[in-house]
């Protein structure tokens, strides 16, 4: 096992979640379509105690095949909250097939929903926008300067499948927060067990303003299996539950 003091703090805890999940089959070729689901975990350590957490949402990603130098990325995200309430997003992104997966345009449908208090439900809202020449145009919303390449955070799940050298970029987080000065670079390898089989993971490290060091752990096929940010983790699980935007 890797030295726990030199690894991201939540790695060992979240690696245990992978133990009962299947490793992915061979990855589709570069530029081909793929689909993946992730559990969204809330994870933290009790004071002087053990790590704890659980599933608090889901992420669904569906990438289309490259055509005319671009590809589509269909995203579903839901996060559960006390109340109980949920924050659901469905988005259709068009990205450039330029190695970074930089954004061209997007359309988003957002929904805040409450099961216990229907009066809190917010109708589905639609917005969208595009990006060119270092300018993010949002409809509605004021334009924003964003140094290129502007990469949606969700597109990194695709970008990393083929990345083989460090990448500097501006991240568009959940299509809301512009976070310039991001860097992705190779990190270290690690080994985990998935359904009784040893699986080697290739690590990448993302750092930059507005995020805690985020480690991306890739299967040999290139599929990200585990993403660890501060208190959030994404775990590859083809059967992860989803709550979709419901008109």
């Amino acid at each position: 096992m890797d030295d726990p003091l030199s690894m991201p703090p939540a790695f060992a805890y979240m690696a245990r979640r992978l133990a009962s999940l299947p490793a992915p089959e061979a990855s589709p070729g570069l530029g081909a379509a793929w689909e993946a689901r992730y559990e969204v975990h809330s994870v933290h350590r009790e004071p002087l105690g053990a790590w704890t957490g659980g599933v608090c949402g889901g992420l669904r990603l569906r990438r289309g095949a490259t055509a005319a130098g671009r590809f589509g990325l269909d995203v579903g995200l839901w996060l559960g909250f006390p109340g109980p309430q949920s924050d659901r997003i469905s988005a259709q992104l068009t990205c450039k097939d330029d190695g970074a997966g930089s954004l061209l345009r997007w359309r988003r449908h957002s929904q805040l929903a409450s099961r216990s208090a229907p009066s809190l439900n917010v109708p589905v809202r639609d917005d969208g926008g595009g990006y060119s020449s270092g300018r993010l145009v949002r409809k509605p919303g004021p334009p924003l300067a964003a140094p290129p390449p502007l990469v949606p955070g969700w597109a990194l799940f695709d970008t990393l499948r083929r990345l083989n050298s460090p990448l500097s970029f501006t991240m568009l987080e959940e299509l809301d927060a512009v976070r310039p000065g991001q860097t992705l670079r190779p990190y270290r390898d690690a080994e985990v067990t998935m359904r009784g089989r040893a699986v080697r993971l290739r690590g990448w490290l993302q750092t930059g303003p507005g995020i805690l060091p985020t480690t991306w752990w890739l299967h040999e096929s290139g599929v990200p299996l585990l993403v660890l940010a501060g208190l959030r983790a994404y775990v590859y699980n083809p059967s992860a539950a989803m709550q979709e935007v419901t008109p």
């Binding site: 933290h44 608090c56 996060l79 909250f81 006390p82 309430q85 809190l120 917010v122 940010a229 501060g230």
Partner: peptide, 11 residues
């Protein structure tokens, strides 16, 4: 109340 928020800011 528009949102109850979450006990963790990152979420």
């Amino acid at each position: 109340v528009l949102s109850h928020g979450h006990g963790l800011g990152e979420h």
